[in-house]
């Protein structure tokens, strides 16, 4: 038995869909952010496995791309969590169900 590209892609696909479900269905804003992070990870895993199995050996573009994704994800996480805290301060909740006003 050996491990091939397909295995990694399947893991990535499942991880992505779990993240998608979390992002779509969770009520807590922080929970949604967690789903987005899971999706980022799935994408990164896919990129790295392509880089390992498909691209020519000297090319690290996949890795570089992942580094960029991680960077942007960190920035996004900081901003999103700051937003969550601000929303909480104004509304005393971060339940998506109850953040339904267009203005406050």
């Amino acid at each position: 038995m050996s491990v091939e590209l397909g295995h990694y892609l399947m893991v990535g696909a499942i991880l992505f869909s779990i993240g998608l479900y979390v992002a779509l269905a969770k009520r807590n804003a922080v929970g949604i952010l967690m789903g987005i992070e899971l999706m980022f990870n799935a994408v990164n895993l896919t990129l790295i496995s392509f880089s390992r199995f498909v691209s020519p050996p000297t090319d690290v573009s996949g890795h570089v791309f992942v580094v960029f994704v991680i960077t942007v994800a960190a920035a996004e996480a900081a901003l999103a969590l700051a937003l969550a805290v601000v929303v909480y301060r104004n509304r005393e909740t971060i339940d998506i169900d109850r953040i339904n006003l267009m203005r406050w």
Partner: peptide, 23 residues
């Protein structure tokens, strides 16, 4: 780093629901 940020966000919103429920 990111997970610690998330933990901080959870703790900084003490009165929000902590039950991880679905919509």
């Amino acid at each position: 780093a990111v997970s610690v940020l998330i933990l901080f966000a959870v703790l900084l919103t003490p009165r929000a629901a902590r039950d991880n429920a679905e919509t």
